[in-house]
Design a protein around this nucleic acid. Structure first.
Length: 232
DNA sequence: GCGACAG
DNA sequence: ATCTTGTCGC
């Protein structure tokens, strides 16, 4: 378990945070197809909080992209770096996520984040931000449509429909993906160095049985367990 | 001004 | 995210 280090220049105000996003968003790479599903490694990252005690724990779980077996796990503990503000989630989660990733020996490969990438008010969600800071290919998988709109995908697993930003004139920012028959879809968007089609294929490949990708299920379970053992 | 709003 | 028991269903 490594320790989270919050950079001295980490934003303190919402205005500063938005300025950082506007600066870094220019570095997002959207023209690469990304790693082929079923190849290499895939890493799930997630964060758990104990706001009472100001404690945060992040987990990174590396999976074999083909078998989905766990290759390596790492966790990090630290203090909360920013309050939760819709649109600024990265400033709350990234220091811990970066510390967890640094604790890994294996190459992360594609990183799967909880939340969004391009599907963001300024097109620079958590997944895009992590991608720019690490240079790794990243995607975002969220459980809710945030402020966006979507048509219900077909009832069968594998059905998809566009995730649209109505405010921005109907721009497509991601995809609603049905990972299980008749179950609420997940919301996928590109982070960095991955195409949307590739991202969707990865999500389906990572979720053969449950609604959420194995990568996020495992990372979620790990950071919660580590939080209990570190604080509660 | 008010409400909604990833985790 | 987190607070929380049982319960319906495959």
């Amino acid at each position: 378990m490594t320790t989270v280090r919050i950079p001295a220049d980490w934003p303190t105000t919402e205005a500063q945070a938005r300025a950082v996003q506007d600066e870094l968003r220019t570095r997002v790479e959207l023209s690469e197809p990304g790693p082929a599903p079923g190849t290499g490694t895939v890493t799930g990252v997630d964060v758990a909080y104990d706001d009472e005690r100001d404690v945060v724990v992040a987990a990174a779980v590396v999976l074999d992209g083909a078998s989905l077996e766990v290759v390596e796990e790492a966790t990090a503990v630290g203090r909360v770096s920013f309050p939760y503000v819709p649109g600024l989630l990265a400033f709350r989660e990234l220091p811990a996520v970066l510390a967890a990733l640094e604790g890994l020996t294996a190459a992360p490969g594609l990183v799967v984040c909880d939340g969004y990438g391009r599907a963001h008010p300024r097109r620079f969600g958590l997944a895009s931000h992590l991608g720019v800071l690490t240079g790794l290919p990243t995607i975002g998988v969220a459980k809710n449509p945030f402020t966006f709109t979507y048509e219900e995908p077909g009832a069968r697993r594998g059905s998809t429909s566009p995730l649209v930003d109505v405010e921005a004139g109907g721009e497509e920012v991601g995809c609603a993906v049905r990972t299980r028959d008749g179950v609420k879809p997940v919301f996928v968007s590109v982070g960095h160095r991955v195409a949307l089609g590739t991202a969707v294929a990865h999500v389906l490949q990572l979720a053969p049985r449950y609604r959420l990708p194995e990568s996020t299920r495992l990372a979620d379970a790990l950071c919660r367990r580590a939080l209990r053992e570190a604080a509660g």
